[in-house]
Design a protein around this nucleic acid. Structure first.
Length: 465
RNA sequence: GGCGCGGUAGCCAAGUGGUAAGGCAGAGGUCUGCAAAACCUUUAUUCGUCGGUUCGACUCCGAUCCGCGCCUCCA
């Protein structure tokens, strides 16, 4: 079966293709008012694995991610911290880029802040006005949803119960209809503002994504991703904006990542269970363990984050790394076992088919582990031959091109390889002289430096923790 | 109230109208100076509950219980 994804728009799994092999993809990025938490990272690991899989399937990517660096929360928090908006957002933008790099999330082709696109947003609002979709109230520009009949088609909400024209006054702004939303907010005392042709003010939250997506990707996108909570109203509003301007279908595939819970509870400040990558690392877990855990549960399924699960992820990665090390350092008998070559092909096929099936990473992992178990067994029994190494490593590489967890995160200030080798040589001679105390001493010393030794039939093997 | 999702072993979780993937943890074993790694065996007669359809359902239908998300800012 071909590559297919669940599309929120149609509520069905649909075959995926593009008209020219380029995937125009947009992902809603972070709002930089704080450090991103593990829940945020799930919705960024997802498009990363999606990108990698699309590339594995021969597509070229043109992927855009915004960084929301102007919004109510930012203004509030920056004021509370006594900082300018720029000073404030700079800190968290930098942290976001560092964290995503540590999690091996690839940089999209375009990752760029909202405030660098004020002219594009203003132009978008002007075009909406020209098309008759807006009105002005107290200096702010609003989208009049009554002019956009398709509203609700993404979130599958029926808005017929809400009477158009009903005055909603529980908002700080005056809207004509509960569904209407602000495109451009009139300047307020103590808030940043841009003096533009549509007034002195700042952009509403929704317009940035439409404006940036259309600037870099054109009027029609192949894929748009985001967290499930963004389906309504954010993505619904993006559709109203983009389609209100172009008159064309904005996005073909809407892919939404489910949320995660923490120890079966919703993340919340009061529960104190909002973890950042820094929190995770302080507890001794590696970024790649978090990446593995976040990626191991299919993206449309709620993921229950637990520290047991994170531990399990560490162990699982360790096993795969040991397997890779074994492939690279062991001496296998000459020749090629044809049955095992076929087994490798079967594994690749199973992995690919699982990924094609709406990115079923859990099943893809099962294909990996079944293959690892089978080949480990074959190595023990001597059936695995030197000629089978390449096929095994190729499969492992395919897995890692998506999951990207095999390479250890190297810590600064570690022993050099040469220093490690010297100590190992010393230990080997101590062992020959039956000076096990000295040998164990060296092993312990290296362990403290983050180097793990393993004695095998073919000599000492080592790796970094 | 509207829309939507989920309940599978100790934990995390795949899956299919034909008799339960995988990972982690646990137990026993092989190997080993010790350790590590690896491998083998073992761990759900059962898939929230109750009915129905069927030769046969965890998988389809109905009901029901429980948990969760969105409908306002939220990944």
């Amino acid at each position: 079966m071909a590559l297919r994804f669940y599309n929120t728009l149609t509520q069905q799994v649909e075959p995926f293709s593009t008209r020219d092999n380029v995937v125009r993809m947009y992902s809603c990025g972070p709002t930089v008012y704080n450090f991103a938490h593990i829940g945020n990272f799930r919705s960024f690991v997802f498009p990363d694995m999606l990108r990698r899989w699309l590339r594995a399937r021969g597509f070229t990517l043109n992927h855009v991610m915004n960084i929301t660096d102007i919004d109510d929360k930012i203004i509030r928090n920056a004021n509370a911290a006594g900082k300018s908006i720029n000073e404030f957002t700079e800190v968290y933008t930098k942290a976001f880029l560092e964290d995503t790099a540590a999690l091996r999330i690839e940089r999209p082709e375009h990752i760029t802040p909202a405030t660098a696109h004020i002219p594009e947003m203003v132009e978008a609002v002007e075009q909406l006005t020209k098309a008759g979709h807006t009105y002005v109230s107290d200096g702010s520009v609003y989208y009049r949803i009554a002019t956009f009949p398709g509203y609700g088609k993404l979130s599958h909400n029926d808005f017929s119960g809400i009477r158009a024209g009903a005055r909603v006054d529980n908002d700080e702004y005056d809207k004509d209809d509960a569904r209407d939303f602000v495109l451009w907010k009139a300047a307020k005392e103590g808030e940043p503002a841009w003096d533009t042709s549509i007034g002195n003010g700042r952009p509403g939250w929704h317009i940035e994504c439409s404006a940036m997506a259309m600037k870099y990707l054109g009027e029609q996108l192949d894929i748009h991703t985001g967290g499930v909570d963004l389906t309504f109203p954010h993505h619904e509003n993006e559709i109203a904006q983009a389609e209100g301007i172009s008159g064309k279908q904005f996005v073909r595939f809407w892919l939404h990542a489910e949320h995660l819970s923490v120890e079966s509870q919703k993340m919340s400040k009061s529960l104190g269970n909002i973890y950042t990558l820094r929190d995770i690392q302080e507890k001794g877990y590696t970024p790649e363990a978090l990446r593995y855990l976040l990626g191991s549960v299919p993206y449309r399924k709620k993921l229950n984050f637990t520290f047991d699960g994170l531990k399990a992820a560490m162990t699982s990665i360790e096993r795969l790394r040991n397997y890779e090390l074994r492939l690279k350092t062991s001496h296998f008998p000459e020749g090629t076992n044809d049955a095992l070559e076929t087994r490798a092909q079967t594994a690749v096929k199973a992995f690919d088919e699982a990924m094609d099936d709406d990115l079923n990473t859990a099943e893809a992992l099962a294909a990996v582990y079944e293959y690892v178990r089978d080949t480990n067994s074959a190595m023990d029994s001597g059936e695995f031959k030197a000629g089978n190494v390449a096929g095994a490593l190729a499969f492992l590489a395919r897995f890692d091109s998506i999951f990207d967890v095999l390479k250890p995160t190297v810590k600064a200030g570690s022993l050099s390889d040469a220093e490690v080798e010297t100590l190992i040589a010393e230990r080997t001679s101590a062992k020959k002289n039956k000076d096990f105390a000295r040998a164990d001493g060296i092993r312990k010393e290296l362990l403290e430096q983050g180097v793990i030794l393993e004695d095998t039939k073919e000599g000492v093997r080592w790796k970094r923790a």
